[in-house]
Design a protein around this nucleic acid. Structure first.
Lengths: 182, 182
DNA sequence: CATGCCATGTAAGGGGTTACATGATTTT
DNA sequence: AAAATCATGTAACCCCTTACATGGCATG
C-alpha cells in the first residue's frame, strides 16, 4: 500500500524521502501512516523495479538530498492500481477497542482514567484537523490541482467525522462506566 | 495483539482454535480480525510460553478438537496488559481512503461506481450489526458476565456509529463527484 | 452428488515496526 | 549550549496474509 501512496505523491512532483514523510504526516496519516525507515527502503525497491528514478544532490551548506522522480512505468502502475476497483470493505484494526472489549473485569476507576486520556488525545486531534488549511493554500499555488483538492477535502472530512464520532462514543462510554458503581 | 484477544476469550472459558475464530468473527472482527492460520500458530506459541495448556480430544463420530485452557500465567499476562493504560491514540489504516485521496485524476464515473459499491457493502455491514442479539442471549445464559456485556455493547455501538458515519460520508462524496461533471 | 460447515494444521513471503546509526543546520 | 529540525540510511524482527493441505460430517 505504501508503494501507491509514494507513487501518488511523486505523481504530483519529484520529492525526497523526507518530503514524502512530511506529506504523509500532513495528509494521509490519519488513515495511512509510515515510518521513515519504510519510506526510504520502499523507494529503493521502487527504483529497482523502475517505478521511480533518483538523483543525489550535494550542495554546500545544505544537507544532501536524494530526489525521486516518477517514471512512465510508475505512472502506469499507479493508474492501473486506481483503475482496479476495490471490491471489499477495508478491514480496520483499532487496539483501544480491544482493550475496552475486555475491560469488564477491570476496576472502573482505571478504565475511566484511560477513557479520559483517550478523550484528550482525540479532542486534540480533532482541533488539528479543523485547523488544517494547507489544502486551500495548495490550490491557490497550483490551480490545476483543484479537482484533487476536492478529494483531499473529503478524506479530511472523514477524519473530522471520525474524531467527532470517537469523542461522542467516549462520552457515552465514560457515562456507562461511571454508572457501574452508582 | 491477537495474543491478548485469545487470552481474553479463554479467560471466559476453555475453547478450541476454531471456537476462538468464531468468537472473533462474531464480536471483535470489526475492530480486530484474524485468520485461522494465525490463531492456530499463536495458540501453539502461547502454549510454549506457558500462557495456555491444551488437550487433544478424540471422539468417535466427531471431529478431533484441541481445547485450550488459560493458565494462571496467562491470566496474569492478560491482567498486566489491561492494567497498563494506553497512552497514545490507536493508528488506523484504511486503504479505501487512500484510493479516494488519489482519485483526482480518475474518471468520475469509475469513482462513482466504486463509491456505490462501498455504499452497498457498508449498508450491509450496518444491518448485520443492528441484527446482533448474541450479547443479550449470552448474558441470560451467564448472568455473571453482565458487566462484560456492557463493554461488549459499547464496542458494538462504535461499530454501528462507524458504519453510519461511513455511509453518510459516502453520500457526501458521491454528491461531490457527481457535481464534477455538472 | 456437491456444497458447505466443522476442524486443524504448515509454509512462504511480505509489509511494517522498532531500534540502531550518523551528521549538519537552525532555532531557542 | 541544548534542543529541534533537516536528512538518510541499515538491520532485525515480528505480525500478519496468502496459499497449500487434509479429512470427516451434514445438508440440500
Amino acid at each position: 500500500m505504501i508503494k501507491y501512496i509514494l507513487l501518488g505523491f511523486l505523481n504530483y512532483q519529484p520529492m525526497t524521502g523526507y518530503d514524502l514523510k512530511q506529506s504523509i504526516d500532513h495528509s494521509t496519516a490519519h488513515f495511512w501512516h509510515a515510518h521513515h525507515s519504510q519510506i526510504y527502503t520502499t523507494l529503493r525497491q521502487m527504483e529497482q523495479e523502475g517505478l521511480v528514478t533518483s538523483q543525489f544532490i550535494y550542495l554546500e551548506g545544505e544537507p544532501n538530498r536524494r530526489v525521486y522522480t516518477i517514471t512512465e512505468g510508475g505512472k502506469i502502475e499507479l493508474k492501473s492500481w486506481l483503475e482496479q476497483p476495490m471490491l471489499e470493505m477495508s478491514a480496520i484494526k483499532e487496539d483501544f477497542l480491544v482493550r475496552i472489549f475486555f475491560s469488564g473485569q477491570r476496576e472502573p476507576e482505571k478504565v475511566l482514567t484511560e477513557l479520559r486520556l483517550q478523550m484528550a488525545l482525540h479532542q486534540e486531534k480533532l482541533e488539528t484537523y479543523r485547523a488544517i488549511s494547507d489544502i486551500d493554500q495548495n490550490v491557490k499555488l497550483h490551480p490545476h490541482l483543484k479537482r484533487d483538492a476536492a478529494f483531499w477535502h473529503m478524506t479530511l472530512n472523514m477524519g473530522i467525522g471520525y474524531e467527532e464520532l470517537y469523542i461522542s462514543w467516549l462520552k457515552d462510554t465514560i457515562k456507562m462506566v461511571e454508572s457501574l458503581n452508582g
